[in-house]
Design a protein around this nucleic acid. Structure first.
Ligand SMILES: [Mn+2]
Ligand SMILES: [Mn+2]
Ligand SMILES: [Zn+2]
Ligand SMILES: [Zn+2]
Lengths: 137, 137
DNA sequence: GCATTTTTGCAATAGTGTTGCAAGTTTTAA
DNA sequence: TTAAAACTTGCAACACTATTGCAAAAATGC
């Protein structure tokens, strides 16, 4: 669609096949995507390196964000809050379903603040909740 | 010390040099350790594979726990709550200092519960806070 | 001490992510 | 519309992380 090109242009990125396909994938998929998902779902079209570079570019531009995981994998999801290049400010809880294994951005659920010990000063907080998602029961 | 051997025996583990040194390292270090830290601080004594296997064994036995990170590294720290083989139940917030880069278990700070959307059922939650630690200001 | 069980080190293998560079594509501006 | 400039891609090479099978070595239990 035209919308996808607009997002790229708005972020001062050249419009290329790879970027269009990958961005489309994020927009049309519910749940977060790992590098491997992207390689798989775009077909055998793009080099691994291109996918890595595209993901990094999108993160830098504030188009997608990282999601922390307990294992050492990296997941990405579309930013819905209006993040800018160099500064993300989505601040929502992430949910990992133990059944379907999807990772979901709970855009409406804000990460709560906690009382830290004397002398600690927070700058950012992440929260990941595991359990069973709405679709799985 | 004798204490270290006791911890191993209590968990039905053979007492070996590698396990003693690695466990000692966790007990005597404030903050969490990555695989690389352990290789470094034990000297050139142990094979990388042995370190991996020891860490996995300790996690299985409930002696140490994983800490989630935003980058894709794996950190480990001593369990202070009485975790058992196959079932961890430490449930504390982790703090990563942006200055000294240490990762600290805030054993006194419990992960808060959040209100999830209709249909979602939580089983476990993790929280990681970034900022400046007590030592760094 | 000796047999049994467990752990270790090595070699091989797989996965993940980065970099330099030449070739190819997109943008820009004439 | 075109050609130069700017940027992106694919390839090859590399680095780092993690796992497995197997034989040798060490620890345990008697
Ligand atoms: Mn998210
Ligand atoms: Mn901890
Ligand atoms: Zn689910
Ligand atoms: Zn600090």
């Amino acid at each position: 669609m035209v919308v996808i090109e607009d997002i790229l242009k708005k972020n001062q990125l050249s419009v290329t096949d790879g970027r269009k396909k990958i961005l489309e994938l994020f927009i049309s998929s519910e749940g977060a995507l790992a590098h491997a998902d992207i390689e798989e779902k775009t077909g055998e079209n793009f080099d691994r390196v291109t996918v890595y570079r595209t993901l990094n570019t999108f993160v830098e531009k504030g188009i997608i964000h990282h999601i922390p995981t307990t294992d050492n994998s990296i997941l990405y999801a579309l930013c819905k809050d209006n993040c800018e290049a160099g500064h993300h400010h989505d601040n929502h809880v992430h949910f990992i379903c133990d059944v379907c294994n999807k990772t979901i951005c709970l855009d409406e659920v804000t990460v709560p603040t906690v009382q830290l010990p004397e002398g600690f000063r927070p700058s950012h907080a992440e929260m990941v909740v595991n359990g069973v998602c709405g679709d799985c029961k």
